[in-house]
Write a protein that binds this DNA or RNA. Structure first.
Lengths: 141, 141
DNA sequence: GCATTTTAATTAATATATTAATAATACACA
DNA sequence: TGTGTATTATTAATATATTAATTAAAATGC
């Protein structure tokens, strides 16, 4: 059956792994009325004080045009603000509101716990080899 | 830098690997005016004669509601047809048109070649360990 | 047989992805 | 100084993802 050749291709296996892994996290995000992408933005802002939209796009792997709408909705939810950069007026810094900052303590423990559960389900050596393989694929040009 | 903890989390590394791998294939699909999802559907139909929408959803990892529109557009492009099942009239079989079948010989060689290039860029043992790691993650419940 | 429950495909509403184009600003440099 | 070029964010158009609800048909229990 050559259908196997397709189903076990690297891209399909990557997609399948994400399908297996993400629902447990999305359940948590959903409890806070956040989408996965909105969470990624907050997750970065909890570490970095002010980030331009372009840089945020690179770090979150969210395409800039998508990010525009995502920031719109986070702004509407009073979790972030846009601040025009003074030094380069083309740039816009995204910053947390106090509400957005406060979310960290509520969400992060649950996500960290779910992540620990996931990691624990896998043999440590297999995990390391997986991460290393992903690094090499990402670097392969 | 705890931003690293996020960027090197398993989900982000999976997304990053896909971002690194897929553009080369999408370029090929684009030459035939196909989206990645449309290609996945055709790829499966080239192996299986008639597949119900639900089964197609499972194999392609495309959510059924998305698949409805994807099949609509493939039908409009005269590449597939819908056929109501006689034995169970709830089911709909998706089948290739002659045009859809003919595409295989044009696209598959180019995709197979791109895939071989990708695989060749990675150390074989690393590749195997990556595949095995993805299998374990997918199985981890 | 009939009511109940399941299943298959679809619709609906909202959010995001993809690709190309655009407006405003910064920059290089003749 | 002004002109061409690159960069940043955004818009636009189309396709897809996510979740819940709906419709029609089939299976199931009694």
């Amino acid at each position: 059956m050559a259908i196997d050749q397709f189903s076990r291709s690297l891209p399909m296996m990557l997609y399948r792994a994400l399908d297996a892994v993400m629902p447990r996290f999305r359940k948590i995000f959903n409890d806070f009325s956040l989408t996965e992408q909105q969470w990624r933005v907050l997750r970065v802002l909890w570490e970095l004080d002010a980030v331009t939209l372009n840089r945020l796009a690179r770090i979150t792997l969210i395409p800039a045009p998508s990010l525009v709408g995502i920031i719109d909705r986070l702004e509407r939810a009073h979790l972030v603000n846009r601040q025009r950069s003074q030094s380069d007026r083309r740039k816009i810094n995204i910053v947390l509101t106090s509400q957005g900052a406060a979310l960290e303590d509520e969400i992060m423990p649950r996500v960290a716990s779910a992540y620990a559960d996931l990691k624990q389900a896998i043999d440590p050596e297999t995990w390391d080899q997986l991460i290393q393989g992903l690094d090499e694929i990402t670097a392969a040009r």
